[in-house]
Amino acid sequence: GLTQVGIMEPVLIRVPKCASTLGIAVEGGANTRQTLPRITTIQKGSSAHICGRLRVGQVILEVNGVSLKGMEHRDATRVIAEAYKTKDKDFVDFLIAEFN
């Protein structure tokens, strides 16, 4: 039979802004070994932690519909920070890639 190994399945995760901080640490970006931002830490008590759906190791493909592909670390993290800061929305939508 066929065995599926490491299929990347994009998942949309909506994180409500329910705490003062988003609370994720990310590494990566264009021109590094990790070409898309990858979650390395989730801080306790933060919005990401309370939401409960983000996980260490997940890769962020899009933020509020904006693709992070090709963005260097500084630009990608700025997109994430501004999505959390804006008062236009009381949530941030992440398109996440996770291995199933």
Partner: peptide, 15 residues
């Protein structure tokens, strides 16, 4: 001859 792609590690940012 083997060609290796060496990219630098990334910094980590807390958001």
């Amino acid at each position: 001859r083997e060609k290796r792609l060496t990219l630098p590690p990334s910094e980590i940012t807390l958001l």
